[in-house]
Design a protein around this nucleic acid. Structure first.
Lengths: 153, 153
DNA sequence: TTGACTAAGTTCACTTTCAAGACTTACTAG
DNA sequence: CTAGTAAGTCTTGAAAGTGAACTTAGTCAA
């Protein structure tokens, strides 16, 4: 399999990675969630080649994860904002952050905490079942083919 | 920033990506969660260069995400199994899958469904707050510096 | 008018990583 | 001995990232 054919796989993870799996993209999204909006600020935060950042931002805009929003008119200037589709990546992103917290924060502890404004507390993400509300244990999950599965030849 | 300095960032996402952010790694983990275990089977499923697969598996083993378990002795042969640490990536992985389902499954629907054995139903992942149990809306989360944050210069 | 500045890219030469495939190693069985 | 199995290792060329400079399209002040 080639990386550039991921979008054609009958696999949702592959299709997701076709959009957000390139080097640096998840860190671009991290910044977007932290309210970084402008090209120069993404570039300053990440310190990556401008060409790479341009490409990453373009794909995210093309796929509707980010949108370009004019923040001034003369001259016209744009910033990049998360769309609803982009916001939908939050659970995945915060799960990755919290996994890093759990295993790599060391003695100092997590560099960043997430306060749930609804209850006022710093939280850990817990993945629960949409149907019964229980926390999900991966050993209690059985994958099975769905309607979009590839037909057997 | 160079990709090979991610592990030194005071950022949990960067630290996570230093381990699982390389091209193909998340698909290796997908397969591990789907009970693929042997080198040849990973290779057949992914169709990637054996050298790349070797490197990815090695880093995952070195970092304790996968472990090598002998499945026979003569000759000794190993398979790769998820550790507890590796299982901890399930929420992130399934969130990415479900994001792909939501946006790229098209008319056919998701290729793979996840049955929660505890309640017997196919589920969507819902991220909830460890403290109050409510579903998390990213707009209701405020990030703030934690104990491991980088000191200001 | 010119020059300086700002923001967002685009281009280039070089380095690193992936892709494709062949080859190697260490066995076992016939 | 040969053939087969499993898990790598090695090689060459293509693709992607790195680091930095340059370009474009404005605006504003002197």
């Amino acid at each position: 399999m080639r990386w550039d054919t991921l979008d054609r796989e009958a696999c949702s993870l592959s299709r997701t990675l076709a959009v957000i799996g390139d080097r640096w993209t998840l860190l671009v999204l991290r910044d977007a969630f932290l309210r970084v909006r402008r090209f120069e600020d993404f570039q300053a935060s990440l310190g990556i080649a401008r060409r790479v950042l341009t490409e990453r931002l373009k794909l995210l805009v093309d796929e509707g994860v980010l949108k370009k929003v004019a923040y001034q008119e003369r001259p016209v200037r744009y910033e990049y904002r998360l769309t609803e589709k982009g916001l939908g990546l939050y659970p995945a992103l915060v799960a990755l952050v919290h996994w890093g917290d759990a295993h790599y924060a060391g003695k100092k502890g997590p560099p960043l905490l997430h306060r749930h404004l609804t209850c006022g507390r710093d939280f850990r993400s817990v993945m629960t079942c949409s149907e019964c509300g229980e926390a999900i244990d991966p050993r209690e999950v059985k994958p099975h083919a769905g309607p979009g599965a590839k037909k057997r030849a």
